[in-house]
Design a protein around this nucleic acid. Sequence first.
RNA 1: GGUCCCAUCGUCUAGUGGUUAGGACGCUGGCCUCUCACGCCGGAAACCGGGGUUCAAGCCCCCGUGGGACUACCA
Length: 469
Amino acid sequence: MTNDKVRTRFAPSPTGFLHIGGARTALFNWLYTRRCGGTFVLRIEDTDQARSTDESTRAILDAMTWLGLNWDEGPYFQAERVGIHREMVQKLIDEGKAYYCTCSPGALEAKRKKALAEGRKPKYDGTCRDRGLIRSPESVVRFRCPDVGVTVMRDLIKGAISFSNEELDDLIIERADGYPTYNFAVVVDDAQMGITHVIRGDDHVNNTPKQMLIYEALGCEVPLFGHVPMILGSDKARLSKRHGATSVMAYQEMGYLPEALVNYLVRLGWSHGDQEIFTMEELIRAFSLEAVGKSAAVFNPEKLLWLNQHYITTYPAEKLVEVATPFWERKGFDVSDGGFVAQAAANLRTRSKTLVEMADSGSFFFREEVDYDPEAAAKFLTPEYAGHLEAVAERIPDIVDYTKDGLEIFLRALAEERGTKLKWIAQALRVALTGKTVSPGIDEVMVTLGKERVIRKIRRAIDQIKAGG
RNA sequence: GGUCCCAUCGUCUAGUGGUUAGGACGCUGGCCUCUCACGCCGGAAACCGGGGUUCAAGCCCCCGUGGGACUACCA
């Protein structure tokens, strides 16, 4: 499978953030390339001067970096390459394979509408095809498409697809402003950059025959194509903002781990037997385009959440601290004690689906004053439990084995001594220490908080009981 | 409208002519248990329809139906 001649590319247009669909396309390209030991090129398709922004370019690069999708060449900027594009346009004109056209957009639009209304196909009628026009300020350049014959694409994912050339249009390859259009620029750039495998979204399938014809007209070798299926929203419509977050970086902000997103995305449309969890190394070894499915997939946030929780619970401790810290910092907490943050994260990891959730549910670790949940307090911060709390606070200084196991033994013994059950003491303590009836194991919480903080919190809870009467 | 693509549990999918149609998320019953999670054991849940081909079809062929993409001087 190793083939270091393989050259792939990811070519986003910088008109917005990197979205989920683009990320998966980039991921498939990346995996395929790494699997082959080839070269992954990044090219920014910014020929649409009006919509492209530097901010978008930076956001796309950031997102790819966050996901771990490094590129070997680039980023190249398509707009900087217009010289080459124009040269190639001129070459086609000189060879009679392209021609100037002065049909106005308005006239074209009218013809399209009329054709549609009459049930005919809205195809360029070839008005300027043989007029032998020369360049003028309002002229565009059209590619002369053969009107007979068949173009067949052997897609790496979808298999052979054939198109009858008769259906193809004399598409515009250079606009009146002198900039190339997508279908032309992409061919010139891919050819010139020696791209061997074009892996992209399957919304490009219908563009492919036109592009293949341009490769041939240019005298360039046609690359191999692999069209990956779209990602849909829950209503089966193409994934968009109204289905929720679609920007990759939005997931970082919501407390997702890049490993989770990568793992989720790769399984959308690709599978390897029954395996659900993959490391990057495993993916690189197992990935293949043949195993990519042909049908569109619906984005399922629940499964992403499950994977995220899986990665949070299994992340190496040091990395977990690293990614979790900013979320507490953002809430204004003191995160200077790395060991303390690490313990808090360790206590919370199995019960957090996202880092945001982890930061929220673990706020009590960082707050001196406990925020008592009214219902919890009403139930457990009562005179009935004050004695238990008092006993715990009094005995803590003398506990030698202040560990999870040691505390469990201590609390059980105390419960027996006081003629109650562990659960009642645990719940009262839980509310005293965390303010809630739901938290990590009470012994773990006590260990993480440390004797002093625990005693202070218990005292404050007792005061609260006395005050509340 | 035309061209092209697609079709197994609600969702992601395994399956390449003979399977009790498997796994995962979610849902759900139970166990574990100081709460909540985690974990473990169990359950409900699918081959879009109709014709062929074949001894045998989820798998092959045809026709429907449904969904999607494209049909720009956007990419």
